[in-house]
Simulated scan of single mutants.
Amino acid sequence: MSEDKPPSSQTTNKTWLERIGQMFQGEVQSQEELVEFIQDAGDRALIDSYTQDMIHGVLNVSRKRVRDIMIPRSQMVVLENNNTIAKTIEVITQSSHSRFPVISEDKDNVEGMLLAKDIIPLTLDGDIENQVITNIIRPCVIVPESKKVDVLLREFRAKRYHMAVVVDEYGGVSGLVTIEDILEEIVGEIEDESAIDETITEDIKKVGKQVYSIAALTTLEDFNQYFDTKFDESEVDTIGGLITKEFGHLPSSGEEIQLMEYQFKVIKADSRRLVQLQVKVPTTESQT
């Protein structure tokens, strides 16, 4: 066998990146051609579908601005700078987030950010009803909504921060963006720890005197049985389906609705479905 031609086994052992590199040498003239090469590589099984999707994700990120992927202002979960530790723990528990913008008067007045882990030392002395979070607020990164997403990702990595508040051209807060938002553009939705816990813990959990956390996929039958309610099970199967039906649209995080004497709040939703709800039950409710 000629030494100029490596064995076929060596070729097949090359990584997909090396193969793509060989195909691209001197041939690709535009991003459109690059997309065609990626599609062709997938069709010929040189790369698998997951790798193909990731490459497309990287290309898409290079074309997007922060405004395209940010969490809108209306869906931001924030803390007020005079919140007590007890109130802050309640918000953290309900939202399952780990980082929060801290505001003063309104969402246009961001004082900084708070990491959920910074709360832990303050709970040790037991005075959580009177202590406020002012002394543990960290500086917050501000970025314009016109910033390119790939540039922001490099800054996230270089400066080792994970969240930024997004402002418009007039300086008003328009949303926030996290490193997870960018990574999901590349690899798809990333399930967090709380989402995993939903599959291995009970769908209905008591989190306050009259407040329960409810997985949106909890069946109406189970909900009715647990709370001794009589919501109609003939048209929808889940409590999330009922809430969506009553809203008349797919609600966003933070939206609330009252059905009978039960106050429902959307805690988590994606672009296709509700994920987690909170319900405040009537004062006569004695469920545990």
Rank of each mutant, 00 (worst) to 15 (best):
Ser252Ile: 08
Asp237Glu: 14
Glu256Lys: 15
Gly241Cys: 08
Gly254Asn: 10
Met260Lys: 14
Val236Glu: 03
Glu246Lys: 13
Gln258Val: 15
Met260Gly: 02
Phe264Thr: 05
Ser252Arg: 13
Leu250His: 09
Ile239Leu: 05
Gln258Trp: 14
Thr238Tyr: 00
Leu259Thr: 12
Gly240Val: 04
Phe264Arg: 06
Ile257Asn: 15
Lys265Phe: 12
Met260His: 08
Glu261Pro: 09
Val236His: 01
Ser234Asn: 07
Thr238Phe: 00
Lys265Val: 01
Ile257Val: 14
Thr244Leu: 12
Lys245Thr: 10
Phe247Ile: 09
Phe247Asp: 06
Ile243Phe: 02
Val236Phe: 01
Glu261Cys: 03
Gln263Val: 11
Glu233Met: 11
Glu235Ser: 01
Gly254Arg: 06
Tyr262Glu: 07
Gly248Ala: 06
Met260Ile: 08
Lys265Pro: 00
Gly241Phe: 03
Glu246Met: 15
Gly240Lys: 00
Phe264Ala: 09
Leu259Ala: 14
Met260Arg: 10
Tyr262Ser: 11
Gly241Thr: 01
Val266Tyr: 03
Ser253Lys: 06
Leu242Arg: 02
Tyr262Asn: 11
Glu256Tyr: 13
Val236Lys: 01
Leu259Trp: 08
Gly240Glu: 03
Val266Trp: 01
Leu259Phe: 11
Asp237Gly: 05
Glu255Trp: 05
Lys265Ile: 05
Leu259Lys: 13
Asp237Arg: 04
Ile257Ser: 15
Ser252Ala: 12
Phe247Ser: 12
Lys245Trp: 00
Leu259Ser: 14
His249Lys: 12
Pro251Met: 12
Lys265Gly: 09
Gly254Val: 05
Ile257Asp: 15
Phe264Gly: 04
Ile239Cys: 00
Glu233Asn: 13
Pro251Gln: 12
Ile243Gln: 04
Glu233Leu: 06
Thr238Cys: 02
Leu250Cys: 08
Gly248Pro: 07
Gly254Ser: 14
His249Gly: 04
Glu256Asp: 13
Glu233Phe: 07
Glu246Pro: 11
Gln258Thr: 15
